[in-house]
Design a protein around this nucleic acid. Structure first.
Lengths: 228, 228
DNA sequence: CGGAAGATTGATCAGTTTCAAGCTCCGTGG
DNA sequence: CCACGGAGCTTGAAACTGATCAATCTTCCG
């Protein structure tokens, strides 16, 4: 129990709450662990509650009938997923699988729902979180429909390097997974990485990528581009 | 003012509220009208509040640097947009333009925010609405990345006919707008409609489309398809 | 009636996927 | 310790989808 409470403070969904509220939450939260590749839920499963990532990484994705997958989001520690089911009561809208060995907190729908009813502040935090997610999705839709793959990759690399502030970034997922995140396939990703290397924009060695020409990468995302 | 209150009951965001709450809302809601094509806000504008459509239709979209637009959502009467700004306080994440002559209610951020603070039920309704939107976006992302244009069109036609229950559907937007909604351009849409006609799946005359082979349309969305 | 915006059709082309074949890395078992 | 084997990654050639450019046709208002 105390263990659960220890995690709560780092969760954006619950930021700024009072001690009493944390105690309430820790009373209903259940810790669960998943091995790498283990499924947390499938699309259409009844939404009995929502999850928060404590450690590891969870992949949220959709699969087409032919097996192609589009990653909607990679959730790291402190991020939540499955909240939508709390309010719609419908099944989960996507699949969730542990991309790394992961531990999560599970909050049952019914218990959390009544908690929210007593506590407006909790609801406000949650709305801000949902709004943030909505904004991210709008960005993803924009990227998928307006930009081509090189632009999406460039944007992602800049995002990673911006976060770490460094010139050398580490892909925290396999290239196959990165391809799915960018809405493409491993072959295409591989070719584009090779092209960016050839142009001297980056220097990639496995999962390590050094950014050589930041300006150049930014341009790819903007204009109608041609990579020679 | 009474005029404002009259609209509130039909708004899903505010469903199930008490009379007193409607009165509160009508006190802070402001009615605004827009001509067809008139801009309501632009991406990046400060989010001073959110909107609810009373009449007409509002197009929410993103534009690339080259001018190509991707419609995120077409809001009809009773639907809300711009809510995200209430909680994030950041600028709007997309553009909004009246696709038809439209009237909307505007709810200023500050006033609504304090209203929500006193009223948990209002917050719960709003969360359900945000969740619903989130679910729609997940569907849109899936469509854009997993399906090809014929599949997206087929799904949209089935959606329209399912809603009206009828075999003959009316496109409620111009073909150019429909193309943007499907993430493509008018030429491509035109070709695919012609192809569906040729195959005997539909019979289109202008904005009127009669569905001849429901099963056939469904198949297009599912399998790796080839339209001869 | 005229004209402009929207819609269709054709030809061409770039980007991406598909299919197929090597390659590299790394863990496992002999 | 080294060889084997497999998964993931890379590369090549061909096919395909959708975008672009350009021209024509339709529609629908003023």
């Amino acid at each position: 129990m105390a263990d659960v409470a220890g995690h709560l403070a780092g969760i954006s969904l619950f930021r700024g709450l009072l001690r009493a509220q944390y105690e309430e939450l820790s009373r209903i939260g259940v810790k669960r662990s998943f091995r790498k590749g283990e499924r947390i839920f499938s699309e259409g499963d009844e939404g009995t509650g929502f999850y928060v990532v404590c450690g590891g990484r969870v992949k949220i994705f959709k699969v087409s009938t032919e097996g192609k997958e589009q990653i909607l989001h990679l959730c790291g520690p402190g991020e939540s997923f499955g909240e939508v089911s709390v309010f719609t009561g419908q099944g989960f809208p996507a699949d969730a699988v542990a991309a790394l060995p992961s531990t999560v907190l599970f909050f049952p729908r019914v218990a959390f729902s009544s908690l929210i009813r007593q506590d407006p502040a909790l609801a406000l935090n949650m709305m801000a979180q949902l709004s943030k997610r909505l904004r991210q999705f709008a960005g993803l839709i924009e990227d998928l429909s307006l930009k081509e793959v090189p632009g999406r990759l460039a944007k992602y690399l800049l995002y990673l390097s911006g976060r770490d502030g460094d010139e050398t970034v580490d892909l925290d997922v396999s290239k196959g997974q990165l391809a799915a995140l960018l809405g493409t396939i491993p072959e295409t990703l591989s070719r584009i990485l090779a092209k960016l290397n050839r142009l001297g924009l980056i220097c990639s060695r496995g999962a390590q990528i050094r950014i050589l020409d930041r300006r150049g990468l930014e341009e790819i995302g903007l204009e109608g581009k041609r990579l020679p």
